[in-house]
Write a protein that binds this DNA or RNA. Structure first.
Length: 171
DNA sequence: TACGTGATCACG
DNA sequence: GTGATCACGTAA
């Protein structure tokens, strides 16, 4: 299991290093293929302006989940990073099924659905024996490029994925 | 390319 | 209270 110290670093570093790691939850396992980082003073981040009820968990110490509902029907899964009081997180955009997964996993809304993660898991710890991330594979090559699907801050190069993987999400 | 869908937030 | 907005997915 990855230690708390893995998560309490800058979101960009964590986003990059999460690639190839394995998420384990509820008997299901999946390798992380694609991520996006959301940092402090980032126009695309939910915590860009101020602390609200929704984004409060982003201010927590790294190593917990931030889940929210998008477009009224998709629950998106983020991993909170950095020290307490520094709002930042990493969005999981695509994973590769290893065990116990049904359905598609090549998009952020599909990842939560496949893993069985919902808003009820908001704030849940990633250093527990119920939900955790551990060593998986070593990515051959990592691509860093601009984020997609945002109305603001889309141009920032905070998106990472494993090169040539067929599960990388599309716009 | 169009739109469903509902929580959330910035207003007043 | 109310209206605009939104880190998406699907079908067309």
């Amino acid at each position: 299991m990855l230690d708390k110290s893995f998560y309490t670093r800058d979101a960009i570093i964590v986003a990059k290093e999460l690639l190839g790691k394995k998420i384990c939850y509820n008997g299901r396992e999946a390798i992380i293929i694609e991520t996006e980082a959301y940092t402090i003073s980032d126009p695309g981040s939910h915590a860009y302006k101020k602390k609200t009820k929704r984004n409060a968990v982003m201010y927590d110490e790294g190593g917990v989940l931030y889940i929210y509902l998008c477009y009224g029907m998709h629950e998106l899964m983020n991993i909170v990073t950095d020290k307490e009081g520094v709002p930042s997180a990493v969005l999981i955009r695509a994973v590769e099924p290893v065990k116990g997964i049904k359905g598609k996993t090549n998009g952020p809304g599909l990842v939560t659905k496949a893993l069985g993660i919902t808003r009820k898991h908001n704030g849940m710890s990633l250093t527990s024996n119920e939900l955790w991330i551990e060593k998986g594979i070593k990515p051959e090559e990592i691509i860093q490029t601009t984020r997609i699907g945002l109305s603001q801050g889309e141009g920032l190069p905070y998106r990472f994925y494993i090169k040539d993987n067929p599960l990388v999400s599309k716009k």
